[in-house]
Nucleic acid binder design. Structure first.
Ligand code: FES
Ligand code: FES
Lengths: 131, 131
DNA sequence: ATTGAATGATACTTTTTAGGTATCATTCAA
DNA sequence: TTGAATGATACCTAAAAAGTATCATTCAAT
């Protein structure tokens, strides 16, 4: 029902802010107002993105976060997988209860194709597109 | 994160069951076991589909539900809109906080296209495909 | 008419997930 | 040594999804 949650939304804004900032690192305190998220929450998001390799982090005074690669190489799908985990269009595909003939099921095949195309489209959107 | 919720999942199974049953009407009591949902919950789902015009309903002894049109004319998108309401891929599109230049925003345009194509694909899947 | 099998409507509860806070540890430049 | 920054993690709250319960209404069969 909602493909992009608020964490991804905040992340997108923060990354755009960082891309525009043109500084080696940006501390969370400097972006939270523009992004519109509370500091600790935004920090948690940034930490997830750091762990996922999307961001670099510098601790200590004068530190902050920085994009780990160029904006055109950070895809919306990267954010989604770091912050929401994999998409599952249909529960039934995942935990196949009541689902005989899993391989032969036309719905499943159909949904798989739809899911793959959706992911491919989402992977074409990059942070650069949002600047 | 999850595009199809459990109500839609149950509904799909129930409609397939009804399509196969080849009877004028099918009461909920006869499908609940195959569908795997508790009676009252499934009834609520069927009632929503009735209100949405997807099903016919016959009250009283010997009654039950029936498909309102042929299986190939009942689309997955019909079930989703009846049971989940409209899809919104991105919150920000809906309640545009912090979003200056709404019209000019590249992400929004990109997401709109993606959303439209996804919906179009979902509209190509019918109950007939699931039988 | 009465009964019982069915849906109609709606209020309520429980479970799960999303969203958010709080706290303390660690690092590092000044 | 201090204070500005992230790292890790536990905790809490709010919202949504999932499920239950109840009573009203309809209708065929008797
Ligand atoms: S209904 Fe589950 S794979 Fe088809
Ligand atoms: S960020 Fe909301 S429309 Fe672009």
């Amino acid at each position: 029902m909602k493909l992009i949650n608020r964490e991804v939304d905040y992340a997108a804004r923060a990354l755009v802010f960082m891309a525009r900032a043109n500084k080696p690192t940006v501390p969370v305190a400097q972006m939270q107002e523009t992004v519109g998220a509370a500091g600790p929450f935004l920090r948690k998001i940034m930490q997830k993105l750091h762990r996922a390799g999307v961001l670099q982090a510098v601790k200590g005074k004068g530190g902050g976060f920085a994009l780990a690669r160029a904006p055109e190489n950070i895809r919306l799908s990267d954010l989604i997988s770091a912050l929401q985990g994999p998409l599952r269009l249909n529960d039934c595909v995942v935990r196949r209860k009541l689902c005989r003939d899993h391989e032969a099921c036309a719905l499943r095949r159909r949904m798989e194709g739809i899911e793959a195309r959706l992911l491919a489209e989402i992977a074409t959107v990059t942070v650069k597109d949002l600047i």
